[in-house]
């Protein structure tokens, strides 16, 4: 037995597998957006002065970060019907991914907000800016910049974690690779192609993340020294050195 290169390339352009890639992609995108929105809500609850709400958020984060996604998916899809609650395959996958991801996102969002100096809120309060607007326009944009790096890790992890949905028969890349493997027994060729697809998707996300980082750090790029107010200071400091 050898590695069949042409079979490998065949799988790279296999419509059936590429269809699975699309499913993986949209599961990830939906998981990220849903997880981020739910995570923001959980983070707000976690930071709220109400002990009940903060306690609920704390429990939520503890529970969904502390149990495997695999168990969450299986319980939602095959366990809950036992209690009379039924979800379809894709619904189950989305619910599981969003519940799990939002627990991580909540902590990322909270850390971002905690890093904003209190002076930012005070300056806005002193201008008479209402609280909701402070969150929307002052603290959130600044927190988001700090969230991008941990968010990047989380998205990367989620992208690969979607492969767990294959266990509840969601036909994403992993599941369809399994199906092809069982049909043709070209284990290395199929899974190598699947790995290439995941690499391509994570690389795509790297590009998006880099763009986000550039976009949100515009304000933090130091301008090149200019002729103007900076120049006399520079001249003064040079003068001091010469003397």
């Amino acid at each position: 037995m050898t590695f069949d290169i042409s079979a490998f390339f065949g799988y790279l352009f296999n419509d059936f597998l590429l269809g699975g890639v699309l499913t993986t992609l949209w599961l990830t995108v939906a998981g990220v957006i849903g997880g981020l929105l739910a995570g923001m809500l959980i983070a707000m609850l976690r930071m709220s002065p109400s002990r009940l709400l903060a306690g609920f958020a704390r429990f939520y984060i503890w529970f969904f970060r502390g149990t495997p996604l695999l168990i969450q998916l299986v319980v939602i899809y095959t366990g809950l019907p036992q209690l009379g609650v039924k979800f379809g395959v894709l619904e189950s996958a989305l619910i599981g991914l969003i519940l799990n991801e939002s627990a991580y996102m909540a902590e990322i969002v909270r850390n971002g907000f905690l890093a904003i100096p209190e002076g930012q809120r005070e300056a806005a309060w002193a201008l008479g800016v209402p609280r909701w607007l402070i969150v929307l326009r002052i603290t959130l944009p600044q927190a988001f910049r700090l969230m991008i790096a941990p968010l990047g890790n989380s998205v990367n992890a989620l992208l690969k974690a979607t492969s767990l949905a294959s266990v509840i028969s969601v036909e994403e890349v992993m599941r369809r690779s399994d199906m092809l493997m069982q049909e043709h027994f070209q284990v290395l060729e199929v899974y190598a192609a699947a790995a290439v697809f995941y690499l391509a998707l994570t690389s795509l996300w790297d590009l998006v993340q880099r763009w986000l980082e550039r976009r949100f750090s515009r304000a933090h790029v130091r301008a090149t020294p200019e002729v103007g107010a900076g120049a006399p200071v520079l001249a003064a400091s040079l003068g001091r050195v010469e003397r």
């Binding site: 002076g119 930012q120 300056a123 002052i138 944009p141 600044q142 910049r145 949100f216 304000a219 933090h220």
Partner: peptide, 8 residues
Amino acid sequence: QFNLFPHM
């Protein structure tokens, strides 16, 4: 500490 909004 000035407290200007750094992103604006």
